[in-house]
Each structure stands twice: as structure tokens, then as C-alpha cells.
Design a protein around this nucleic acid. Sequence first.
DNA 1: CTGCCTGTCCCCTGTTTACTATACGTGGAC
DNA 2: GTCCACGTATAGTAAACAGGGGACAGGCAG
Lengths: 122, 122
Amino acid sequence: MTAPKPKFGAFLRERRTAKGYSLRRFAELVGVSPTYLSHVEQGKVDSPPTADRIQKMADLLGTSADELFALAGRVPEDLPKIIQSQPEAMPALLRALKGLTPEQLKKLQDHAAKLRMEVDRS
Amino acid sequence: MTAPKPKFGAFLRERRTAKGYSLRRFAELVGVSPTYLSHVEQGKVDSPPTADRIQKMADLLGTSADELFALAGRVPEDLPKIIQSQPEAMPALLRALKGLTPEQLKKLQDHAAKLRMEVDRS
DNA sequence: CTGCCTGTCCCCTGTTTACTATACGTGGAC
DNA sequence: GTCCACGTATAGTAAACAGGGGACAGGCAG
């Protein structure tokens, strides 16, 4: 039950038509069948497209890939690797981040960037 | 190809025997067949057990669930939800964390805990 | 009215996931 | 010796995943 949010299909359709792509044309560019794309846009699929297709959609539509992944109910593919590089510390940290606002997360991100500078100097 | 690290099986077997469980007994407690558990311990499976089974194993063996998840090549099940709660900020932050040491991550974790206090006060 | 393009509907398909059943060889206790 | 528990190799499988094919109704340009 990796059910994509119902908004995923609607979002896709709106952006696609806004870009002037027909369903068939867009399906071809993404590399899926018109049938399947129609299903996806109507939210009639139980599982969202694969990561590479979502990435292509984001590229073609000029939207944030992360946003599209989230709407699809998927996690961007590079994140699991990052987490597993520190199997103890990363999960603990992530749980500490739960509930924080985007602004606070941004602050921590800047902080992390500074820490990384120190690493690079050593 | 969600291949579990080869060390996963070895680790499991060592901890299981150390606890004095036979393969059949442990399999029963975890809720899988002896056959499957044998395969897992030999690293002969292409896909690791499901999250709930890994959790049970960790409980029975008295080990960190996060560590076991990492060895199995899985991401702890609560993390995707946390990420998707902030679909833009979380991925960006995680990428900024890439390559940091456990000590640095711990620092950020403490920092996050402080920020959370502020949230709770508001 | 005939193409042609639009999206949609029903049904079908191969692949992967996460296992299970059955049968088997081995070694010790009685 | 035979009974039992140990772990194991071979084979198979239900369900989910990620789609695809072909026919179809509706609009509308020439």
C-alpha cells in the first residue's frame, strides 16, 4: 500500500496541460504508455511510477523533483543511501527533527554546511 | 535488488546462537519458516525480511533495531514519514548531512532538541 | 463525413518480493 | 540401530508492483 497521494495525479495533469503537452506526447517523452499515464493522472494506480520516471516528469514539467516524489509517496532515491551511511546517528537525528518547521530545518542545514567546511579543512 | 549486506546473515546467526536459540525455535518466535531463516542467515536471499520481522529479531536478540535495519539494507519504517512531512526541507537538509561524522551529527541532534523546546513553548 | 487527435476503459502481462513445503543428509542420545 | 533435532538444498508460490495493448467515444478541421 504505497498509495500515491490523490493530489499527485491532479498536480501532474495540471502542470502537463499548462505546459501544452498532450497526454500521448508527454507519455512518450517520459517513456510510459498513454494508458498508464492516464491511469496515474486519475489516481487509478495503486503504485506510483518508478523513481526514474518521476525524475523525468519533474525535468519536463520544470518542477521540484523532491516535491513530485513527495506527492507520489516516494522517497527520493539518494536519501536511503545517506541514511545508511550512518545507520545509528542518522535515524536518531531524523527523529529529533520530527515536527520542526521548515525555517528551523533551514537553520540546521546552514549549520551542517559549516560543519562540513571543518571536515574539508582537516 | 535491495540486496542485504552479506554481514546481515552472519550477524544474525552469531547473535542467535549466542542467545541459545535453535534455528527452528528462533524462526517460530520471529514468525517465519525455518527454511527462510536458514536462507537469510546464509545470505542466500535477494530480499531481506520485512520491517516487522526485523523488529522482532532485534527485540529477541536484544540488539539495536536501527543497526539490524542497516545491516539488512532497509530503512527504519518511521523515517520515510518524517521525511515526507517536510518534502522540500528534509531532503535538502539530509544532503547537507552527507559525509558528516557521527559526532557532528550528534551535535546537530542536540541542536535540534533545543529548537524543539522553542516550538513547544510557543 | 472522414480523418485525426483528445483522453479513457477493460483486460492482460512479466517481474519482483517475501516468503513456504517437502524432502534430505548429518550427528548425538538412548 | 533408530529416533530425534539440527540445519540445508530444491522447488514453488501468492500477492504486490509496474506497467502495456487495443478498442472506444467525443470533438473539430477540412
